[in-house]
Amino acid sequence: MRVVIVTESFPPDVNGVAHCALQTARHLVDRGHSPLVVAPATPAGPGPDALAPCPVVRVPSLPLPGYPQVRVALPSRRVTAAVAEHRADLVHLASPFILGVRGMAAAARLGLPAVAVYQTDLGGYARTYMGVGEAAAWRRIRSVHAAADLTLAPSSAALRDLEEHGVPRVKLWPRGVDTVRFRPGHRDGALRRALAPHGELLVGYVGRLAPEKHVDLLSGVCGLPGVKVVVVGDGPSEPHLTEALPGAAFLGRRTGDELARIFASLDVFVHTGPFETFCQTVQEAMASGVPVVAPAAGGPLDLVAHGRTGLLVPPHDASAVRDAVRALAADPARRAAYGAAARDAVEGRTWAAVGDRLLEHYADVLGARRPAVAA
């Protein structure tokens, strides 16, 4: 197949949309298909695309006001031209909202099927950043996804949200995890001694430092005796969080094997954001053999088995987060059991397995578009 992946974000961006688009492109190449990526331009220029598994077309973009790590694509004819020149069989829309709308229009103009992958809870973001606008965000989501031949939801909660808001033709497609890179064997004693020189319990958060992530819910954890909080990531909330989380170690953005060592060296992983459609960092922590504390909302509901691989807590509840960490800190055997069960739970969730499921969805869409052959 010749597939054009139109994505709102792509490496060197570090986020779930970019990572999933990259893994999708890699899997298509590995299975003998021909992908092309269309993505917003980055300040770094075309250099990083030399490491991409396939050609990348960059569309002019501007930084989002107040959050320069996020780039917003500008109107451009390059999208339709790229799809046509690639002679695409199918258009894959990764978290379509702005650039993805152009991708959807290109697919319609050229008579091509489109598969839209829902990845971002824009309604939740509207509540967080503006206090209003959730209904408008859902109208936009419904309009974009209703035009697709198929919408893929990353979790059961996301699938229900889409259906309840009137999005048709929705199926489940979860995310994979690199179980070779993220594994318990990367636990690093030297790193642990550097972060916790007095043998403290290491409790970590990995992800964007932005208001919708509610990382300040870790404030109570910072006050627990014998606990060291480690924060990995960057974003506009970092100045506030350095004050809100006294004593926490802020390591900035980390990727690749270095990130894998940090994950495996933690004793407990905490995710605080209540608006996750999937939550890849929870899955990476589980692959690293680390018990998880996460809100009982969105994607983590599919990932964390409460009382077996971690603990689910009420969203927005700092006291519940603190109490869950305190309970795990007091019970090393429980942490070990949860961590081992977490690793077992994700063993089969490789990107190869998940990618093959995506190809099945592609085949269904292409099959439905073919005219029936008379008997």
Rank of each mutant, 00 (worst) to 15 (best):
R2K: 15
V6T: 04
P11W: 01
P11L: 00
G16W: 02
A18D: 03
A18W: 05
T24C: 12
L28M: 09
V29F: 10
H33S: 04
P35V: 00
L36K: 00
P43Q: 07
G47N: 08
P48H: 07
D49V: 09
D49C: 10
A52H: 11
A52W: 09
P53H: 01
R58S: 07
S61T: 06
S61P: 05
P65C: 11
P65F: 09
P65H: 02
V70S: 01
V72N: 03
A73Y: 09
P75K: 06
A84E: 10
H86D: 05
A88S: 04
A88C: 05
V91T: 08
V91Q: 08
A94V: 11
S95M: 02
F97C: 11
I98H: 14
A106H: 03
R109N: 15
R109W: 04
L110I: 10
L110C: 11
L112M: 11
P113H: 12
A114Y: 13
A116L: 09
G124I: 13
A126G: 03
T128P: 08
Y129F: 15
Y129P: 02
Y129Q: 04
A136I: 09
A137F: 12
R140M: 15
I141G: 04
I141C: 03
R142V: 13
V144F: 12
H145Y: 15
T151S: 14
T151M: 03
L152W: 00
A153Y: 01
A158G: 09
L162A: 03
E164F: 07
E164H: 12
R169A: 11
R169M: 09
V170C: 13
V180N: 13
R181N: 04
G185E: 15
G185F: 07
A194D: 15
A194K: 13
L195P: 04
P197F: 11
H198A: 07
E200G: 14
L201T: 04
V203M: 07
V206Y: 04
G207Y: 03
R208T: 05
P211Y: 08
V215S: 05
D216A: 14
D216E: 14
D216F: 12
G223W: 04
G223M: 13
V229D: 02
V231R: 01
V232P: 04
T242P: 02
E243L: 12
E243M: 07
L245G: 02
L245N: 03
L245A: 06
P246I: 10
G252I: 01
T255D: 13
I262K: 06
S265A: 10
L266K: 07
V268C: 05
V270C: 07
T272C: 11
G273Q: 12
Q280W: 03
M286K: 05
V290D: 10
P291C: 09
G299L: 14
L303A: 10
T309Q: 11
T309A: 08
R322E: 06
V325W: 00
R326L: 12
L328T: 01
R335S: 02
T350H: 05
A352D: 15
R357E: 15
L358V: 02
L359R: 08
E360I: 10
A363P: 02
L366V: 05
G367N: 13
